[in-house]
């Protein structure tokens, strides 16, 4: 047994006896970023479907949510950073080794793409909004440009969607890599986090469709998609845990946080039980014709996705190479 004491009372970044630099803002940002990626992937993929009637939400209306949710994520990130007047510094450099730098530039490209995706279906999905914006822009004499842009987007919908997909996947994976790139944090230091967060973001976006959509055909398709995603997510989590369990001592120690340690109940109850297993069960029952509140399963999926970010961000900070 070792008695280790920091005798000079060091409290930098230490809260309740463990390292704690990132609060609620970063996990929320990661969740919203993943959700945005999911939304963009769904709307982009739907652009390639031949038959779009019966899929009004996923093929059209949903696209409007992408920049809104992304902006909420950006606000969350802004709340996290401490030297706020210097936020513009993200865009005076591109640091090739920094996932955060990659992320900030990808986010910058995501915005125009998501706007073009909105314009591609805006006349059909949001005619009221379209005429409002048109009116507003005509006052600024920009309505012609807007119209041209809209027509361009409609005409090149598939091309735009095709370009969006890789960027959206990058965004989704980035939310995981942001954490997994930290070699100093064994809990995060797993390449599974990228795919896991991507799948989780997608399943949250699908859950959003299930909550917002009223069309049976769309609901039924996306319920199936969600089942597939939840299964994948479950497998990825399992692989993530296996990765930790079969790695060196420090990684095994990190694993104990959720296998008996402080975060065990929250991980297994909120992520695995309520975030994966129960919604999966509910959706399977629903497909088999059972009458269940249709919004319950997707709500649990979204909550589970949020918890996943929160608990993983916390766990990574609670465990490090140093025992003090």
């Amino acid at each position: 047994m070792k008695e280790i004491t920091i005798t000079t009372n060091k409290i930098s970044n230490m809260v309740d006896g463990h390292f704690h630099a990132w609060g609620w803002e970063v996990p929320l940002y990661l969740f919203l970023g993943g959700l945005t990626a999911g939304i963009l992937i769904i709307t982009a993929v739907m652009a390639f479907r031949k038959r779009q009637d019966g899929f009004k939400l996923s093929a059209g209306k949903l696209s409007l949510w992408a920049p809104i949710i992304l902006s909420l994520g950006m606000i969350s990130l802004f709340l996290d950073i401490k030297h706020k007047l210097f936020v513009w510094r993200f865009y005076t450099a591109f640091e090739i080794t920094s996932p955060m730098s990659w992320g900030s530039w990808v986010l910058l490209l995501i915005y125009p793409l998501s706007f073009l995706l909105i314009l591609a279906t805006i006349r059909e999905s949001y005619p009221g909004l379209f005429s409002f914006v048109n009116k507003f822009l005509s006052a600024l004499k920009l309505d012609v440009l807007f119209k041209k842009l809209t027509e361009f987007s409609e005409k090149n919908h598939k091309i735009i969607a095709g370009i969006t997909i890789p960027f959206a996947i990058t965004l989704g994976i980035y939310t995981g890599i942001l954490l997994s790139a930290f070699g100093s944090r064994p809990f995060w230091n797993s390449s599974m986090l990228g795919p896991l967060f991507l799948v989780s973001g997608l399943s949250s976006a699908v859950a959003m469709v299930l909550i917002l959509s009223n069309e049976n055909e769309e609901r039924s398709l996306f319920t199936k998609v969600d089942i597939a995603l939840l299964l994948t997510e479950g497998i990825f989590i399992l692989l993530f845990l296996i990765g930790l369990a079969t790695s060196s001592a420090q990684y095994k120690a990190a694993l104990t946080l959720i296998t008996g340690g402080a975060l065990t109940p929250s991980f297994w109850i909120f992520i695995v039980m309520f975030g994966l297993f129960i919604p999966l069960l509910l959706e399977l029952l629903e497909l088999n014709g059972r009458k269940i509140n249709p919004k319950l399963a997707p709500a649990l999926v979204i909550a589970g996705g949020l918890f996943l970010r929160f608990i993983i961000v916390e766990a990574g900070q609670m465990n490090s190479w140093l025992p003090y």
Partner: peptide, 23 residues
């Protein structure tokens, strides 16, 4: 050694105080 700094205090100082402290 143990500190009397609670998480809540820390968040208050680091988060909400940030904009003010820049100035």
């Amino acid at each position: 050694m143990a500190s009397n700094f609670t998480r809540r205090d820390f968040i208050k100082i680091s988060g909400y105080g940030a904009v003010g402290s820049v100035v």
